Computed example of a mutant assay.
Amino acid sequence: MKNSGIKKRPGCSWVRGKKGTASFFVGDRSHSLSPQIYVLLERLIDRIKSMGYVPETDFALHDVDDEEKNNLLVEHSEKLTLAYGLITTSPGTPIRITKNLRVCGDCHSAFTYISKIVDHEIIVRDPSRFHHFMNGSCSCGGYW
């Protein structure tokens, strides 16, 4: 790909909150709320792991050990966007996330668990379909 001059599009997700629209790339720490976003994500991941969530490290496409793969999965743009939405919207308000690439299986699984513990409907639009997460299930029936 490098020799041909072809570049892969980076994953990007965006959401509208009380403070306007925010967009995130994987591992993004440029937002002013990044410290709060990462703290919230850590808490959410710990909580859903106690409910049975197991990170799907096959979706971390780097040649690193499993612990580092788990860290990379937390930094996916859709998870950062969800945390921003949770921080900046009132309980009960739907969180509408748009993603330029297909949502990964790990994020889909995590959002399914997270939808059990937050007072929000989570709607993710990727290039293929809409996913409506609510009360521990997704409108796609697991066909992400």
Rank of each mutant, 00 (worst) to 15 (best):
P35W: 07
L33C: 04
V15I: 14
E121M: 12
N70A: 09
S23I: 00
S109L: 07
I123Y: 03
R125H: 13
S32H: 04
F130R: 05
G141H: 09
D66R: 11
H62C: 03
L72F: 09
S34Y: 05
V118M: 10
A83Q: 04
G136N: 09
L80T: 07
S30R: 14
E42V: 01
D46W: 09
S50F: 00
P91E: 15
L40I: 01
K116R: 15
K116Y: 03
S137F: 14
H131W: 02
C12Y: 06
F59D: 03
L40C: 00
L33A: 09
D106A: 10
V26I: 11
Y113V: 08
K19Q: 06
H76D: 04
L86N: 02
S77L: 01
H108D: 13
I122C: 07
V39A: 10
I87T: 06
N71V: 08
H76W: 04
K19A: 11
E56G: 01
P10E: 14
S139I: 11
N3Q: 13
E75H: 12
P55I: 00
L101W: 06
I87W: 03
M1P: 05
D65I: 11
H131C: 04
L80H: 08
H120I: 09
A83N: 04
L33M: 09
K19V: 05
S13P: 06
I45T: 05
R29I: 13
S34F: 01
I87R: 02
E56I: 10
L40P: 00
G92P: 12
G141R: 08
S77E: 08
S50C: 04
N3P: 01
F59G: 00
N100F: 07
V15Y: 00
P35R: 07
S32M: 00
R16E: 14
K116M: 15
K69V: 10
F133C: 07
L44T: 01
M1N: 08
K49I: 15
F111W: 06
M51I: 05
E67I: 08
K8M: 14
V118I: 14
I117Q: 09
G136F: 12
D58K: 11
E42Y: 06
L72W: 10
F133D: 00
P127T: 12
G105C: 06
P55T: 06
L44N: 00
F25Y: 15
G85L: 01
K19H: 13
E121N: 11
R29Q: 14
D28Q: 04
R102M: 12
L82W: 07
N70W: 05
E75M: 13
G20P: 08
H108L: 06
L41H: 01
I48E: 00
D66E: 15
G17A: 15
S77N: 12
R102T: 13
E78D: 14
F133Y: 15
A110G: 05
G20I: 10
Y143T: 14
W144N: 07
G52N: 08
D126P: 03
H62K: 12
T98V: 11
I45N: 01
R43K: 13
R16D: 03
S13R: 02
T81K: 02
S30H: 11
W14M: 07
H62V: 03
I95Q: 01
I123R: 04
I97E: 02
